[in-house]
Amino acid sequence: MNRYQDTMDRLRFTPEQKEDMVDRLMASEVATPRRVLPIRRLAAAGVAAALVLSLGAAGATGALGEVGAAFSAIFGSSAQTEVIDKIGYPVGASDTDHGITVTADAIVGDTYSYAVVYTIQREDGTALVSDDVLARAANPETEALPLAFQSHDTTPRGYKGGSHARTWFFDADPADNAIQFVELRTQDTPIQPGELTVQLRDLELYNEDYTACTTLAEGSWTLKFQLDFEDSSRVLPCGQTFRLDGAEAELNTITLSPLSIQVDYTVHGAGDPSLDWIEPLSLSLTYTDGTTLDLSHAGGSSAYGEDGVNCQKSMIFDQILSLDEVASITVGDVVIPVTQ
């Protein structure tokens, strides 16, 4: 049996609110559960205007500079422009139903992970959400718009594995009538080039205490576009052993990219199958200047096999990295250099 986990530690909701949101999302798709996390930064003034202009030019010119603008609200306005333009591309796929258009603006990806930014807006130019709803996103206790899709299915063609994701809504520019939706997804097997189908249904609004939803806008939207990244991932040398909660664990592979990290390891003699072997694993990144980035809150998956518990701990970073600035990865007490 596969178990999927994604940390909830950084959510700024009460435990009851978190549980309610997770239950709703888990019920919509058992095979690939997903949980909503708040955006941790808002776009700087003017980002949305740059996004609209740049995405309009993308289809005609094929230029990639607009990818950084599309993701500036996710990875920060100082995102590694050259790096993000290399690993991503504008999309432009859209679908309209009940007078509402959903457009996939841009995508970035690597071996196991990808991130997509969508824009949602009414065709008649009226605002999709009220000022009161926008004000709720400004509350530091929530940070994200209190919205959810009633159902959300993301399916790469022919994919049989599992995945875990973070999704949330935000407003890049309160002066326009559009809002944005972002999905950060990690698979447990490598992404294969090909068509991705995204199916969305009914936009819903959470009440003030996040215990229930009402329908904000009915609709069914299906978008299809290609997964075809220039993969800049590095596979680090592994095979080292370490102790994890009293059991012996072995590192199988570590895949590092400017977008994400995935650590594959096996816990031998794990014993009780109900134990969690994802959260206890300490994981960090050390930069060449000596500073560190704690990644222990990453989510992942585990599956019981003949050799023990096979685990994958992974996450998409808060910022796009330049791998030239990464010195090493530490898993448990094992330090793995990143060769420059």
Score class of each variant (00 low, 15 high):
172 A>G: 14
267 V>K: 00
229 F>S: 01
128 L>T: 03
238 C>L: 07
262 Q>R: 12
181 F>C: 03
238 C>H: 07
248 E>M: 12
28 S>D: 08
15 P>G: 10
249 A>P: 09
116 V>P: 00
48 A>R: 11
253 T>S: 14
24 R>P: 06
296 S>A: 15
217 A>Y: 01
102 V>M: 08
99 G>I: 09
280 P>A: 12
8 M>E: 14
238 C>S: 15
237 P>Y: 05
289 D>V: 05
163 S>C: 05
159 Y>N: 02
168 W>K: 02
214 T>P: 00
196 L>W: 02
186 T>H: 05
53 L>C: 04
264 D>P: 04
197 T>I: 07
76 G>M: 02
75 F>A: 06
125 G>T: 11
30 V>A: 13
63 A>H: 10
150 Q>N: 11
116 V>K: 00
147 L>Y: 02
312 Q>H: 05
149 F>Q: 00
223 L>A: 03
310 N>T: 05
183 E>C: 03
62 G>R: 09
195 E>D: 08
243 R>K: 13
210 Y>E: 10
127 A>F: 06
219 G>M: 02
199 Q>R: 14
313 K>V: 07
74 I>Y: 05
307 D>W: 03
336 I>N: 05
28 S>R: 12
170 F>L: 12
157 R>Q: 14
282 S>I: 06
68 G>I: 02
240 Q>D: 15
214 T>I: 03
232 S>W: 04
14 T>F: 14
171 D>Q: 14
7 T>A: 13
315 M>D: 12
126 T>H: 06
57 A>N: 09
149 F>L: 03
2 N>M: 09
10 R>E: 12
210 Y>C: 11
142 T>D: 08
154 T>H: 04
340 Q>A: 14
81 T>F: 10
270 A>P: 07
97 D>E: 06
8 M>C: 09
229 F>N: 00
169 F>I: 14
78 S>H: 07
33 P>Y: 08
150 Q>G: 04
74 I>F: 05
126 T>N: 07
222 T>S: 10
46 G>A: 02
319 Q>G: 05
266 T>S: 05
114 Y>L: 09
262 Q>I: 12
98 H>N: 15
254 I>N: 01
301 S>P: 01
270 A>E: 06
15 P>V: 10
119 T>E: 14
243 R>N: 13
140 P>C: 01
124 D>F: 03
219 G>W: 01
180 Q>L: 07
240 Q>W: 09
276 D>N: 15
257 S>N: 04
334 V>F: 11
108 V>P: 00
182 V>G: 02
286 T>I: 02
81 T>A: 15
302 S>F: 03
200 L>W: 07
276 D>H: 09
189 T>Y: 00
305 G>D: 02
307 D>A: 15
189 T>F: 00
161 G>N: 02
294 D>R: 08
38 P>L: 07
63 A>N: 13
64 L>M: 07
235 V>A: 10
10 R>V: 09
152 H>F: 14
289 D>M: 07
244 L>H: 11
141 E>W: 07
317 F>T: 08
224 K>A: 10
168 W>D: 13
235 V>W: 02
160 K>V: 14
244 L>D: 05
14 T>K: 14
